[in-house]
Simulated assay, not measured.
Amino acid sequence: MQKLFQRLSKFISPNKLAKWMMRFSPMYKRSTGRITYISDDFTEINIEIKLSYKNRNIAGVIFGGSLFAATDPIFMIQLMQMLGSRYIVWDRAAEIKYKRPATPAAYAKFILTKEDLEKIIQEVNKNGETNIEKTVHLTSKDGNTIFAEVTKTMYIADKGFYKKKIAAKSK
């Protein structure tokens, strides 16, 4: 998938290509989430999860698993695009806290600032690797009602450092 993305990004802007690929990606489509916006520099990605027959639970609201699945890959995608191929990015942990039932739709804005990026790069340059934690809220369209809070922990490492670390573990 990454090789296809690299080739196609020569002809289509990376943010538009990522939005298109996620829209048609079978694993993301199953989450019932839809990416509605990606900034040119990937510092912001917005998603929408509409209530439908595919994600309606027994209580008639959006199934919690759909809320969680729709948020799962976003921070990792942002970091991979913003940091580039010199770095390894993995999801390390995730937690969701449900606040109230989600209906008729839930929205989330994933924000990574330039300061976040600078801090990550400094930590990786100093230690070879780092873990960061980011939180996103799933809200109503106006943002006034919070349905759930998702906290993701991501592991970021220099690719050379990571390869040496893996090689040492396999001995």
Rank of each mutant, 00 (worst) to 15 (best):
Q2V: 12
K3Q: 14
L4K: 11
F5T: 09
Q6M: 12
L8Q: 10
S9Q: 15
K10H: 15
F11H: 15
S13G: 05
P14M: 05
P14V: 06
N15S: 03
K16S: 11
L17V: 13
L17Y: 12
L17E: 11
M21V: 09
M21E: 07
M22I: 07
M22P: 01
R23A: 13
R23W: 11
R23K: 14
K29F: 08
G33K: 06
I35E: 02
I35K: 01
T36W: 08
I38M: 05
I38T: 11
I38C: 05
S39A: 01
S39M: 00
S39C: 00
F42G: 00
E44I: 14
E44V: 14
E44Q: 13
N46M: 10
I47R: 02
I49T: 11
K50Y: 06
K50I: 07
S52F: 10
S52M: 08
R56G: 08
N57L: 08
A59Y: 15
A59H: 14
G60N: 06
V61I: 14
V61A: 13
I62L: 12
I62C: 10
F63H: 15
G64N: 13
G65R: 06
S66Y: 05
L67G: 08
A70Y: 12
D72Q: 09
P73I: 04
F75A: 02
L79V: 01
M80D: 08
M80Y: 04
M80G: 14
M80K: 14
Q81W: 00
M82W: 01
L83T: 03
G84E: 09
G84S: 09
S85P: 08
Y87A: 01
Y87E: 03
V89N: 02
W90C: 06
D91V: 15
D91Q: 15
A94I: 11
I96Q: 05
I96F: 06
K97F: 04
K97D: 08
P101M: 09
T103P: 03
T103H: 14
Y107H: 11
Y107F: 15
A108K: 04
A108T: 06
K109W: 00
K109V: 01
K109A: 01
L112C: 02
D116Y: 01
I120Q: 00
I121L: 00
E123H: 01
N125E: 15
N125Y: 04
N127C: 07
K134M: 04
T135P: 09
T135C: 06
V136E: 00
H137L: 14
H137A: 10
T139D: 03
T139H: 02
S140N: 05
D142I: 03
D142V: 03
G143W: 04
T145P: 05
I146V: 15
F147K: 04
V150L: 05
V150Q: 06
T151N: 02
T151H: 01
T153P: 08
I156V: 14
A157R: 11
A157M: 12
A157I: 11
D158E: 14
G160Y: 13
F161A: 06
F161V: 04
K164H: 03
K165M: 12
K165N: 09
S170G: 05
S170I: 14
